[in-house]
Write a protein that binds this DNA or RNA. Structure first.
Lengths: 299, 299
DNA sequence: AAGACCTCATAGGCTGTCTCTATGACCCCG
DNA sequence: CGGGGTCATAGAGACAGCCTATGAGGTCTT
């Protein structure tokens, strides 16, 4: 089994990289200097790499150390997003700011927003509920949550809303697929005729796709229908066929080349708007307003 | 300080999600069933969430559990990439397949390729050296490595090469920046006139930018010059100004909306090719060939 | 040139956590 | 109404990590 590293050790490594000294890094992470020394030694032993150049005037990263530190930052970023998200889930509705978000937004965006919000308002407790768009609206109307995030074109009349971003559905294929080498954008008619890997009927992404292809006799009978994003992505990676899903779920796969995005002609409209939603009449309190600002990119 | 979770516990959580049983998950991760039970209990306590619905016929995820598991998968993916990368750095040249890669590729792509390669050829040991493009070529010529990965337009005459992908330099700004709301693509002249956040002269990204803007009197005097990608990204996130860096470094920031990519007019050519390179004469062995295939997306 | 100050490493002792095996309680199914 | 599956509890043991105290080495300043 892969012997996984210790997150505390990675955090310490990053601290050393930032401060240039084992002692300062130890202070920053709240442990003693000898412990930090030992911890780094075991990390180095476990990875089998020399990460630090220890001199009497501090510790600098070796070449390998710099590369590993870069990877470590990414691991920690994801871990912190998990912790923030979990905290938001935990403190639910009984705290200062109760938020409900649809699944895509909750999974991919909310944790990062919360990390940023925490820097702006360190004391704020945020509770997060994960629901579908209709449930989010219901929770808002019932006063169970202060703020909601939904995707879709649909605008409820009795609620305020603000656009915080856009989601794009993309058609992705494994690199071996013929579409991976296409130069010309895919037309709506072509996409409508092709059997695809899709989310189940009734899901948000499926509805967007159906609306976009309705004029061309909707999507063809799917190759596979799956109830969640993760297995859909796996199927696409395995080369089962073209999949349609949110760019948020596959951005990194596209960037790294594990999946190829098939460009679409302009007659295929697979965008949907991400909105913050709240109750009319009830003004946004400070925390909610800030969160919307963060989500919009602190305008 | 944020109490970080234990990676082993996250791995166990994912195993429970996959197998549907604490006992099976325990077996899969190589610990006893009671340990698994206790471990999950402490994870739940630490996060303050009920993750599992324990029944006498197995354990299923709760709603919160499903969301946390999704986040956990992302954490683990990054952690495994770190371990794979570290192993490759460690086993260097004294093993079956020695690889040299330039920094951008090594940081962002190689670990994922190695994870995939390991699934295809479990026994293969890969050694990784991180160098700049010129050093990679030198190492190939000297026979120190079997395979290299470089970025750039430049093609050495005495080496074989295969295109494995493309890198794109992007102009990114924090969401509050005026350019974030632009509709029209940015022209080369406009970009050349604007003070930017840049890598230092001589770096690969800087050279590409200079070549692209040479016709318009090069880039303007930079706002800041930084020697690595990570601080450049941080500066951009902080809103210091428009930054120019590889899309690989900021793909997720763009997807999540923390940074906004400014679209560029067609007269700004900021692409560079990623190539696998090897020695003429010396045929690629099985492992090297597979790795190239993986990098190209198993064509 | 020498003391002050910084760096990191080592030693010894302790606490705490995680582990295992063994067992029990519960439920489903035949 | 047993058998086979689930998970929880209990008690003992091992190991890893932490801390304080100290030492050794280098740098900077006076």
């Amino acid at each position: 089994m892969t012997r996984l590293p210790d997150l505390d050790a990675l955090q310490l490594l990053v601290a050393v990289a930032d401060t240039g000294s084992l002692g300062k890094a130890a202070a920053r992470t709240g442990i003693s200097q000898p412990s930090a020394s030992a911890r780094m030694a075991t990390l180095e032993r476990r990875l089998g790499l020399k990460l630090l150049e220890r001199t009497t005037s501090g510790s600098r990263l070796t070449g390998d150390g710099a590369v590993v530190t870069d990877w470590a930052r990414r691991v920690l970023e994801q871990a912190e997003a998990l912790v923030e998200g979990a905290e938001a889930l935990r403190t639910h509705a009984d705290e200062r700011l109760a938020v409900a978000a649809s699944l895509t937004i909750a999974e991919h965006l909310v944790p990062k927003w919360l990390i940023e919000l925490r820097q702006l308002l360190p004391g704020t407790r945020v509770g997060l509920t994960v629901e579908n768009s209709h449930q989010v609206v219901a929770a808002l109307r019932a006063g169970e949550v202060d703020l909601g995030f939904v995707e879709g074109t649909w605008v409820p009349r009795d609620l305020h809303s603000a656009v915080v971003g856009r989601d794009r559905l993309v058609v992705v294929v494994a690199p071996g697929h013929p579409w991976a080498r296409r130069k010309e954008p895919l037309t709506a008619a072509e996409l409508a005729a092709e059997p695809l890997l899709l989310r189940e009927p009734g899901s948000g992404t499926r509805e967007v796709l159906e609306a976009a292809l309705a004029a061309h006799d909707g999507p063809a009978v799917p190759l596979i229908e799956l109830g969640a994003t993760a297995p859909l992505r796996s199927a696409a990676l395995a080369g089962s066929g073209p999949a349609v899903l949110s760019v948020l779920a596959v951005a990194e796969d596209i960037a790294s080349g594990r999946l190829v995005e098939v460009s679409l002609a302009e007659d295929v409209a697979l965008r949907r708007t991400l909105r913050a939603v709240w109750r009319r009449g009830r003004e946004l309190n400070d925390a909610a307003g800030r969160l919307v600002q963060v989500a919009r990119g602190r305008a």
